Simulated assay, not measured.
Amino acid sequence: MNRILKEMIEHAATWPQEDQEELAEYAREIEARRTGVYTMSDQERAAVARGLAQADRGEFVSDELIAEADKRHEG
């Protein structure tokens, strides 16, 4: 690891958790671009699990709400 990167990582360890998570997200995106494999964060994994549980319970957005959203984003 080059000196600049090593110093940056050491300094980032002193940042607030939210900033450290943001830096980790950027690193995951770079890694995904380089390898073609994206690794979800714990927060993303939890959000997917919540969405799947909602789908299992039949909780979907109504067709009317989707149509309204589509109208707002046209043209």
Rank of each mutant, 00 (worst) to 15 (best):
29 E>T: 09
70 D>P: 00
19 D>H: 11
39 T>D: 08
40 M>Q: 13
62 S>E: 00
23 L>C: 07
8 M>Y: 13
34 R>Y: 06
31 E>W: 09
54 Q>S: 13
35 T>S: 15
71 K>L: 06
19 D>L: 14
50 R>S: 11
43 Q>F: 08
10 E>L: 11
74 E>L: 10
31 E>A: 12
26 Y>T: 10
36 G>Q: 02
4 I>K: 12
57 R>W: 03
3 R>N: 10
43 Q>K: 15
7 E>I: 08
53 A>P: 03
15 W>N: 06
69 A>R: 10
54 Q>V: 01
67 A>R: 14
73 H>K: 11
10 E>K: 09
62 S>A: 01
68 E>K: 04
28 R>K: 14
74 E>I: 06
7 E>K: 13
57 R>M: 11
15 W>V: 02
37 V>G: 01
41 S>D: 06
41 S>E: 05
7 E>M: 13
17 Q>R: 11
74 E>K: 12
72 R>D: 04
45 R>Q: 15
34 R>D: 08
1 M>L: 11
59 E>I: 04
32 A>T: 04
27 A>S: 14
42 D>V: 07
19 D>P: 00
51 G>K: 10
11 H>Q: 06
74 E>P: 02
8 M>C: 09
70 D>K: 12
56 D>C: 05
46 A>I: 03
5 L>K: 03
23 L>Q: 09
69 A>E: 13
75 G>Y: 05
36 G>A: 01
2 N>Y: 07
61 V>Y: 00
65 L>V: 02
74 E>F: 07
16 P>S: 05
10 E>P: 03
7 E>R: 13
14 T>W: 03
45 R>M: 12
42 D>S: 10
24 A>K: 14
16 P>Y: 02
27 A>L: 15
64 E>H: 01
7 E>H: 12
15 W>F: 15
28 R>W: 08
43 Q>C: 04
1 M>V: 05
46 A>F: 03
8 M>R: 14
22 E>F: 04
68 E>T: 00
60 F>R: 06
74 E>Y: 07
60 F>A: 02
13 A>T: 05
33 R>M: 13
33 R>Q: 11
17 Q>H: 07
56 D>S: 09
23 L>W: 11
20 Q>S: 01
2 N>S: 13
67 A>M: 07
23 L>M: 14
54 Q>E: 14
65 L>W: 02
8 M>W: 09
71 K>V: 02
36 G>F: 01
61 V>Q: 02
1 M>F: 08
51 G>N: 15
48 V>W: 05
59 E>R: 00
14 T>A: 11
58 G>C: 03
43 Q>H: 13
62 S>M: 00
14 T>Q: 11
75 G>F: 06
58 G>A: 05
31 E>Q: 12
47 A>Q: 15
48 V>D: 03
69 A>N: 11
9 I>Q: 13
30 I>Q: 09
41 S>N: 07
67 A>W: 04
24 A>C: 07
41 S>L: 05
45 R>W: 10
73 H>P: 00
26 Y>W: 12
21 E>H: 06
